[in-house]
Design a protein around this nucleic acid. Structure first.
Lengths: 225, 225
DNA sequence: ATTCATCTTTATAAAATCTTTACGCCGCAG
DNA sequence: CTGCGGCGTAAAGATTTTATAAAGATGAAT
């Protein structure tokens, strides 16, 4: 249904093309950036589920990009590199890389490492399903069931619901939600959030006027129960 | 600081010894098991922060052990193997392995991958609760429980309660509270405070006329117990 | 190019919260 | 006893925040 999104940051067109074909044929939505700068901007405007980062970029060292991304981006970043040099690997992992693969990589292994990274992203509790009363969210399949009927959600609605459900019982601030779903650049756009909370409520609440799942914490954020 | 505990499951004594030396000199507490069976029992009796699992064990295939561990163990499992064979790697990762290294591995890289794996484990457990008789305040989740029922507080009420509870037993002056909650400009507005103390008492005291939590210190301020 | 679904933006009504005012209570000093 | 200052409560008024609809923009699919 909803495809997980992956951002490739790599300057070599042929590698990008190869990755694009491999990933798209495995049902990922692929975004591409040729430079580190462009990659950071793309990630900030529309945070992907995972970033594939080439360490040998022309404009900045990949290590720099990694550091910069990690100041706010907390999903998986897998490093790709021709370097099979221990110092590079250790440095990348210690600066928050999720994994490190040396080129040439084997595509089945890359895909498995991507699956593993995404799985860990989305399930801090090792559960691939979140069950919450009448709502069942299958994160891996990106599918939501409400009273055993399939719910049709857009990608953004789904991401928002997962974020809320993963933090069941906790209040998430507007800023935090906006950063996670829309990216760094959108932290002041609270109106986006109101609109999408509204559409979500229409879809998952039996009576949207008296929400049983998504509660408003006025002046602060929202809480999912 | 507490040492993170790592369980090594490997049948080759020299590898275990090598790992032991490497890990202990990097401030981990090391447990060892020679067989998969023994490893599972040790992990069950005393779950470590991370497991290093050799895939080529004599008693059971490492894949079996991995599957069995993953039925209940949800921290990191790093696979060590002489196999550099793609099918094995993909299978291990898809069955929940956190990472996969082929022997001979470089110890700095192994250590970096261990740090990365442990870091991801721990990222989500910042428990920060204030417990005060029948009141439990979870600051991170922005939740207050009174006798195990969720209390609905506005943002200002919550901030005020947290301030009081953080200074349990101490008298906080009007000025200080006003400065902390409303900011420097409001230090003379003691009436705000009276109103909000009133609404808080209504919500957390069984009998607001005889407060058990928020005590008035006439002429000075308030004290939370 | 056109259509369709989705996302973004704007406008406005409704709700929640905060601020302010008013008044009554109590203890205490005169 | 009376008046005063600090306190508590209620409620009106002001402000902020939220909900919802709907129009415009975007972008993918045909």
């Amino acid at each position: 249904m909803n495809k997980a999104e992956i951002l490739i940051i790599d300057d070599e067109p042929q590698i990008r093309k190869l990755l694009e074909i491999t990933l798209e044929s495995n049902d990922y939505k692929v975004w591409q950036a040729e430079t580190g700068k462009a990659g950071i901007i793309m990630a900030a405007n529309h945070p992907p589920e995972l970033i594939l980062l080439d360490i040998g970029l022309p404009d900045k060292s990949g290590h720099e990009i990694l550091k910069e991304l990690r100041t706010w981006y907390n999903k998986s970043i897998i490093i790709l590199s021709v370097q099979n040099n221990e110092v590079d690997i250790v440095s990348a992992l210690d600066h928050g890389a999720t994994d490190y693969l040396t080129k040439p990589f084997r595509s089945a292994e890359l895909l498995a490492r991507i699956r593993s990274a995404i799985r860990r992203n989305q399930s801090n509790n090792s559960e691939n399903k979140i069950i919450c009363g009448d709502i069942v969210i299958d994160i891996a399949a990106r599918v939501v069931m409400l009273n055993n009927t399939l719910l049709k959600l857009t990608a953004t609605e789904f991401n928002l619901l997962v974020l809320l459900a993963k933090n069941e019982g906790r209040v998430l601030t507007h800023q935090y939600i906006l950063k996670e779903i829309w990216g760094l650049g959108a932290q002041t756009e609270t109106q986006y959030l109101r609109v999408f909370i509204g559409t979500l409520r229409k879809k998952i609440e039996t009576d949207p006027n008296k929400p049983q799942h998504i509660f408003t914490e006025s002046g602060v954020g929202y809480r999912f129960m």
